[in-house]
Nucleic acid binder design. Structure first.
Lengths: 153, 153
DNA sequence: CAAATTCCTAGTGCTATGGTATGATTATTC
DNA sequence: GAATAATCATACCATAGCACTAGGAATTTG
């Protein structure tokens, strides 16, 4: 029951973009350096975020990446679902197709657990936006946070 | 973010024991057959459940396994934590030791997400007991559930 | 003693993860 | 035109965990 680095790096990268939103496109290299993530690996991840429309890209000199929407309109759930697939503890609660593969769907007592689990996780992740993180970072900074690669504002 | 079969098989096996509690020790073979799980594999899982005191074993002919406590006193969280380790999306929120490995612990904005996620999952899993499942199975049976390997009562 | 059953150790094939390496192509700015 | 950057492609690799399988030793009952 662990998230892989895909989801975690993705969230950090998007958070980084949220903090630098307004400065124009942010090159991948800057994100990778600030967040201490392998640039090549991050490239693979952000390609998915672009395909799913969470970020826009600008080519060429002074190019880079931009959030496609306001930080308040992007949830952590949006990001993680793109990078890790459906957020569900077992396949039989993740989507219609997978549900149908389970013969016992209506009778299965145990499935109820996974359903509750899934709903509770998604609820948490869908109520946190990048704007929430940005605000927290600003507060932390004001309250004297020092290190934190998480908020180079 | 998937559970492995360890956690899922474990829950099903314990649920099976809950349903057959009172019949004396349940041999592993019976559980494995009813739940359609590899006997040898299940053996390895139940060994951990025994070491952690969730089940008792009786050797020899007519031996088998028994829940060590009342079904109402065993939560799904108890079972999954034994078989999958701490239920946490990232290590830095799983326990003290892991927390200490993270330099940024106090300042890290993103960590708050994983903390909330962890708490919400654990809350769900710790409020469901084997007795709850047993009751649901009995209800389902009365309401005409037919198939469901989940409740051979 | 034979059968049933738990207990224990080892090995195995597969897949996903988390990268690295290399290079070519396209678009943009100065 | 040079530099900067995204985009695309392909391939490789080491490690770890998963989901078993195999085989046998120890224990208990009848």
């Amino acid at each position: 029951m662990k998230l892989s680095t895909k989801g975690r790096y993705g969230v950090r990268a998007m958070f980084d973009l949220a903090l630098h939103q307004g400065d124009g496109p942010t090159p991948l290299r800057s994100i990778a350096e600030r967040q201490n993530i392998s640039e090549h690996y991050l490239e693979q991840l952000i390609a998915n975020l672009r395909k799913e429309g969470l970020v826009n890209s600008v080519r060429g000199a002074h190019g880079g990446y931009l959030l496609s929407k306001e930080p308040a309109e992007i949830t952590i759930g949006d990001i993680i679902r793109v990078l890790e697939g459906p957020i569900a503890p077992v396949d039989c609660v993740s989507d219609k197709v997978e549900e149908d593969k389970c013969e016992n769907i209506t009778d299965c007592v145990v499935r109820m657990i996974w359903k509750k689990m899934k709903d509770s996780i998604n609820e948490v992740l869908d109520e946190i936006t990048l704007e929430d993180l940005r605000q927290e970072a600003i507060n932390a900074k004001q309250n004297g946070a020092q290190h934190g690669y998480m908020y180079h504002i």
